[in-house]
Every structure is written in C-alpha cells, then in structure tokens.
C-alpha cells in the first residue's frame, strides 16, 4: 500500500512540476523580454539583435571610452553620452539601425520579429 502511495506521490509531483514549468514558460513568452547589448572594443556586441515588439534592449558601455547610441537614419533618438559602466534602455517597437555618433564606425541593428 505504502509502495503505491509512493508511486502515486511521485507521479503527482512530476505532473505538478511539468505544469509549473510549462506555465512559467508560457508567461515568459508573453512578457516583454530584456536583451543586452554590450559596447566594448569599439563595437556593439552583438551587432544585430532579434527581438519581439515591446522587448527592452539594454545597452551597457563596457569599453574604455565614452560612447552613445543614436538612431542612424533620421537621428530620431539618442542615449546621450554613456560614460564607462553606464546603461541605456530602449523599448523596441520596429526595426531600427543605430550607431555611435562619437565613433561613427560603430553600427548596430535591432530587428523586430
């Protein structure tokens, strides 16, 4: 009897765990995600990120000099100067290309899927 209770207990535990994990994953898909982009060695890393609309892209300056993040085509927005260690968060709604206006060879892209 005790053996059957044990087996049933483990079965119930596995079902509950599966439900919890599945549920969490479902929530994670629905909630806005955070994607990190590091500014280091005069590059945006990664250079291109793919996100969902509403996701937040967080740019952090891990380099040795000040940078910024500026929308490239029409200069619609900019982070302003980011000193070493400083971050800037941007909520992506559509595709955008950006660059560092201080070091114009640094370029990156956000693609909204």
């Amino acid at each position: 009897m005790n053996r059957w209770i044990g087996v049933f207990g483990w079965f119930a535990f596995a079902v509950a765990a599966g439900w919890l994990v599945g549920g969490c994953q479902q929530v994670r898909h629905q909630a806005a995600a955070r994607v990190d982009v590091s500014l280091r060695q005069m590059q945006f890393a990664p250079t291109e990120v793919r996100v969902h609309a509403g996701d937040t892209v967080v740019f952090t300056n891990n380099d040795i000099v000040t940078h910024d993040v500026t929308e490239e085509t029409a200069k619609l927005w900019t982070s302003g100067p980011l000193v070493v260690g400083e971050s800037f968060a941007f909520v992506a709604q559509k595709d955008v290309t950006y660059y560092c206006s201080i070091h114009p060879i640094m370029k990156g892209k956000i693609t909204v899927e």
Partner: peptide, 16 residues
C-alpha cells in the same frame, strides 16, 4: 591591448 581597437576606430574615423 585594449587601446588598440580604439586606435583602429580612430584611424577609420580619420579616413572617413
């Protein structure tokens, strides 16, 4: 070594 990428970026910027 960390300074080299900055120097290379400066060079590319200067050439631009």
């Amino acid at each position: 070594e960390n300074v080299v990428p900055a120097l290379k970026a400066h060079l590319a910027h200067a050439e631009m």
